[in-house]
């Protein structure tokens, strides 16, 4: 079974969101997502300053098996992409909710993390969605 921390918010497309003390939102993919992708070999993270609308493709994660888009759960401006992933894509496999974060987003005024709570996401993951 995959790990689903209770203090994060989630999307149906398997991203997680963490609100940092300065108000930026850290985004990554869930343990369930990394398990179904298998070993990651390349990650394309967005550059700082890029403006994203909710639902925009904000990153690409590519495993030995397949390439998948990562979607921005909310509108905002990219504060940072995780530079470590360029040389260590496997951080997403090893620590999906920690050092495997993908980007940090400065939310557009009025945009909030929203999304699903852990229990609701657990139901999505269990249904094989």
């Amino acid at each position: 079974m995959s790990e689903i921390p209770a203090d994060l918010r989630y999307t149906k497309s398997h991203e997680w969101m963490r609100t940092l003390p300065d108000g930026t939102i850290e985004i990554g993919i869930t343990d369930h997502a990394q398990q179904s992708l298998g070993d990651l070999v390349f990650v394309e993270v967005p550059e700082s300053g890029r403006k994203l609308a909710a639902g925009d493709t904000c990153a690409v994660v590519e495993s030995v098996k397949a390439a998948s888009d990562v979607y921005s759960p909310l509108a905002g401006e990219v504060a940072a992409g995780n530079p470590a992933l360029a040389t260590q894509p496997e951080l997403i496999n090893k620590d999906p909710y920690g050092s495997g974060w993908i980007l940090r987003l400065k939310p557009l005024a009025g945009a909030s993390a929203g999304g699903l709570d852990a229990a609701a996401y657990a139901a999505v993951a269990a249904s094989g969605g």
Partner: peptide
């Protein structure tokens, strides 16, 4: 099985 653990 595609992999038992890490494919790599």
């Amino acid at each position: 099985p595609v992999a038992y653990g890490s494919q790599i």
